[in-house]
Amino acid sequence: MTLITALARLLIFPGLVFAMPAAWFFLWVERKSVALMQERVGPPFMQPFFDFVKLLGKETPPRTGIGGMLMRAWPLIAVSAAAGAVGLLPVLPSSGGFQGDLILLLALLELPSVCIIAAGFSSRSIFAEIGSAREAALSVSYNIVFLLAIVSIAASQHTFRLEALAALPATPLLWLGVAAILVCLPAKLHINPFSLPNAEQEIYAGPMTEYAGAELAMWELAHGLEWVAGVGLVATLVAPHVHAVWIAACIFIAISFAVVLLLSVLAAATARLAIDSSVRFYWQCTLIFAVLAISSAILMRFWS
């Protein structure tokens, strides 16, 4: 893998040039499909883009001192982490990658929510702090399922290379892992029924309460990129292995779209769970998936 291909992956496909429109598109799909399910017309196609541009042009409250600098930094870190995660996705076959890029991907995927937690605490608003505390509790509980799912898939293949995993034939273990990841995605993306860190009826806008203007635009972008990365991870794992570049890209987009629709339906059909119910849900999931995933991973290793 040369530097040029790496840069191209990071910046063009599936990196920023592709991921930003994709992020807006997914955000629009989510809002539109929820609206359609509610018998509404919903936002126009360009809406998330307009929102983003408008927020860029708004004033931001003046911040001073180290706290202010941190508050400015968090959204940028979140955006770059999410963009990096998207860039790592092995959408196109044989596009390179290195040994252990899965671990990097997991770290990058986790970084935005760490940023959100930190941002909430550094903004010193009581509502933002509660939002951050909830985000932290939630992230501790869903991450275990999330990591277990991925680790068990990886362990069965003796590799932490994403491309090797993406090329994996569909096995029951893979489906199990994908199901576990799907269970975690609503919490990772803060949509119903796990939208409680940003439950505006209780704590205004959660960790984002004090953010405005361009910084908020960055958060929106980070959120959109998280969508692309999370959904894209599922898509790469599920997608059949094909050599033609264009077909691979199309399959990737189609599967991502389907996953977004699935998550939107879930979001539209549920109420928000309280924090203890959410955590309980994920711990129960953890137990089931942990037993299933680890045991099957061990079994597969013995067989192979």
């Binding site: 929820v34 399910m37 009826q201 109420a271």
Partner: peptide, 16 residues
């Protein structure tokens, strides 16, 4: 009430 539960779809149904 459903809005407060975060149940937006139900909220819309009730308002319709």
């Amino acid at each position: 009430a459903s809005k407060l539960m975060g149940f937006k779809t139900m909220f819309m149904t009730c308002f319709a």
